[in-house]
Nucleic acid binder design. Structure first.
Lengths: 230, 230
DNA sequence: CTGTCTATTGAATGGTCGCTCATTAAAGCT
DNA sequence: AGCTTTAATGAGCGACCATTCAATAGACAG
């Protein structure tokens, strides 16, 4: 017995449309890049007609901007909460950040860094937006972690500004790699998990106070940001 | 007195053309991306007519492939020579590699990683070529460095395969960054040199044998690849 | 059930760009 | 000089694709 209302070919859902179109566009932009994605492809994937995206977005570029904004903003605040609420050794904090990063990788947001990097020169607006909203905050996040470790006497006194970028780099690159060349790398003898563990291994050993791992020496007095040398 | 032969508007230089076209295409592809670069732009920049590139390359995609091959192959062998000829502490070898990387960054080849990553999905041929010729060899290179350090008793016994990727990552990301978002990062409080020094700082401390830096303990016997435990 | 409103459709439009090829003019040969 | 060869040119063709808008059909009120 066939359904009496056989799925109307046209449905009116004004408020659900933008998010659906954005989700479709995000998937295709990440997969194929901006230029190689036709608006018609986006529409088809979202289950709507060619013209519909233009009712909600000014044009293809406007859709792209919406994709970036929509995908990024939710991700940003998340890490900052963790930083504020965490108590315990800074090494554990970094472990948790790095391992949590593996989940972000698999989420729809995971492909955005590669997308933004690929299109930065063609969309300066987006490049600046991304730098301000993601890169700058990301740096502040890692700088805060490193500073926390130094102040608590867990980490050596390194240049936190530069070191934050070095510490963040392997995570960023993993995200970019997974959405670009990884599918063409047949030699699959490594895993993202193994990579993250090796990362934590070097970075934590490299930041740790010398002799902290069984070679006993007097721990130096913890540094306070306001202490001056008299 | 005007020149009697006033620069002919059309010159015939069959053998110099391909390299000139490739150089122009490389600069534009890296700057704007593949799709946003018109063949006419490439021709204009090379000082030739629209039709000329098609005399030497099958089509735009063929030109792209030529750009990647031509730019990459010279770079690859260089590092491997250094590895073979170097004698001395492995830490110094890594320092030299990382600092030498700063020069590669500024060369025409510096923008290729970003370009290839951005276009990988649209040109699987190129993606596979790049993975085989650059990524795989690059990994072998860093794996060899780490293994050298371990065998000489300078580095801890880490998982060289995964660690090689972690150690290479910050250098790769620096290259990608410089050709994508760096121009939009107004907050120029860090330098590539400072980044590289921070990188060497953590990585070398993270790989070093525990207690190697003034915390005296008995150095472990150097490992030999062929030694078995009886 | 009828009429109104408006979300949605998709054929048509116009611009862009990869690519071709008939034509032109250097370069070399005798 | 004249002749031949062929590197190089650039206007024009055709395909592709972002964008439009008159027509259409859900939704909902009365």
């Amino acid at each position: 017995m066939p359904d009496s209302t056989p799925a109307p070919r046209r449905t009116r859902r004004k408020d659900a449309r933008p998010a659906e179109v954005i989700a479709a566009a995000r998937a295709l932009f990440i997969e194929r890049g901006y230029a190689a994605t036709k608006v018609e492809d986006v529409a088809r994937r979202a289950g709507v007609s060619v013209g519909l995206p233009y009712l909600y977005f000014e044009n293809k570029e406007g859709l792209f901007k919406a994709v970036v904004r929509d995908t990024i903003l939710p991700q940003v605040a998340q890490g900052e909460d963790l930083l504020r609420s965490f108590t315990g050794p800074t090494a554990d904090l970094l472990r948790r950040v790095a391992r949590g990063f593996l989940e972000t990788l698999a989420s729809p947001a995971g492909g955005l860094p590669k997308l933004v990097i690929a299109e930065a020169h063609n969309f300066p607006d987006i490049a600046r937006f991304y730098v301000d909203e993601v890169v700058t905050r990301g740096r502040a996040f890692f700088t805060a972690i490193i500073t926390r470790g130094i102040e608590r006497g867990e980490f050596r006194a390194v240049d936190a500004g530069h070191m934050a970028r070095v510490v963040a780099a392997p995570l960023s690159l993993l995200s970019i790699w997974n959405h670009s060349l990884a599918p063409y790398d047949v030699n699959a003898d490594t895993t993202a998990e193994g990579y993250i563990e090796a990362y934590l291994d070097v970075i934590l050993a490299g930041l740790a106070m010398p002799g902290a791992d069984g070679c006993h020496r007097l721990p130096p007095p913890p540094l306070s940001g306001k202490t001056e040398t008299p």
